[in-house]
Design a protein around this nucleic acid. Structure first.
Lengths: 209, 209
DNA sequence: ACGAGTTTCGGTACTCAGTCCATAATGAGT
DNA sequence: ACTCATTATGGACTGAGTACCGAAACTCGT
């Protein structure tokens, strides 16, 4: 989406950032549910359709920073040292992803959740994101463990790991100003999962022993 | 929803089942997305609003059997023997839940997924369900482990366990006619998670040792 | 039998997210 | 000047979900 000016074409107005700001204001003023896309576009001084030029859904606005970090996942996965055992590689990937997330990048919907009141929408839209992560992670794990991409163990391990990641990140985000480093919270949550699956994952692909 | 006739009032027509059937037919004929609620109601010979009397959402239709099983969760949790260690209790609860699911209860959306074509909607609506399960499981785990309901470890463990449960169940459902017992698939997926969290969960509530 | 209370049914009307399409605006390259 | 690619914008449409209202159908007490 939004191919960054591949030479030529009408220049983008500063619309994207303006829309984000307008939305943030309105969410704080009226809450998420009571804010319509028309209002956001109008306050940003932009046509309604322009909104959909930058965001596919209203709920995308709840995930601005997170989406940035998530976009880096393929790169992170590629950078995981090749020598590691599958379970360690999985752990490493998740921690590195957490390390890349900006310290201030807490979704508005979480930091101001009473005001914004979008719990339901937030969770629903968030889960879809992390399902995507789980899929990517599954492919990665399959490759690193020499298993087929459809392998049940691989699927279960990546799902559980992502769930733990999310749990850790959520706990971190909700911890208030005194939260420590995201990486620590994630490590705490993810480690047991990697540990639990390690014996199976690292044993090599189903050698019919 | 749908308070079962608390004496008095107009009797329900057989609408619910009729609606389910009509929806199932239409989904198979035209796919999920191309089927509107009006069509479903019309084929069922019922007003549109009656549909919403029985189902809160269109996507509820994708989860008929699963919702039945999920409704039994509180009962299942209460039945878990009190003597078990927290991690074992968690395992036991999930396996028992799986055991209660009817063998033929595979969501239409999965068994006929090419025809129905509702992947996205299916996953989105499914995830919300299992988030509910994770929350219930969290409370359960907190009580059984003597930790606070907001405990980070408890949250991470229940999230990961539910993710594994779902992964196992999905694998089972997609396995075609030759699938074995659901309980086995779930056990395979959930066991490592419980194993990984066992040392921490069963150690008792953060005794600053 | 009759009225009171309760529940389901069904219609109309509305809001709003998301899609489609057609048309302008604005620039780069030739 | 002309073409091409990209973005902006406006109008019209679909369809889910909500709100409201009045009518149907049944129970119970009298």
């Amino acid at each position: 989406m939004t191919k960054s000016s591949g030479r030529g074409g009408r220049p983008r107005a500063s619309s994207r950032r303006t829309l984000e700001d307008a939305a943030g204001e309105l969410f704080l003023e009226q809450g998420y549910a009571r804010t319509t896309i028309d209002q956001i576009a109008q306050r940003a001084g932009v046509g309604r359709n322009t909104f959909f030029n930058y965001f596919a859904t209203k709920s995308d606005l709840l995930w601005l920073d997170v989406d940035d970090t998530l976009r880096a996942l393929p790169e992170v996965l590629a950078a995981v040292p090749a020598g590691l055992a599958p379970s360690a590689a999985l752990r490493e990937a998740l921690l590195e992803l957490a390390a890349r997330h900006p310290h201030r990048g807490i979704p508005l919907a979480l930091s101001q959740r009473e005001t914004i009141g979008a719990e339901a929408e937030f969770r629903a839209s968030g889960l879809e994101r992390f399902l995507g992560v789980a899929a990517e992670l599954g492919e990665f794990l399959a490759a690193r463990s020499g298993r087929s991409p459809g392998d049940r163990l691989v699927h279960a391990a990546s799902s559980a790991a992502v769930a733990a990641l999310v749990s850790g990140a959520a706990g971190w985000a909700l911890a208030g100003v005194e939260r420590g480093a995201l990486v620590e919270a994630v490590r705490e949550a993810v480690d047991p999962v990697c540990l639990g699956y390690a014996p199976l994952l690292d044993a090599g692909p189903a050698v019919t022993r």
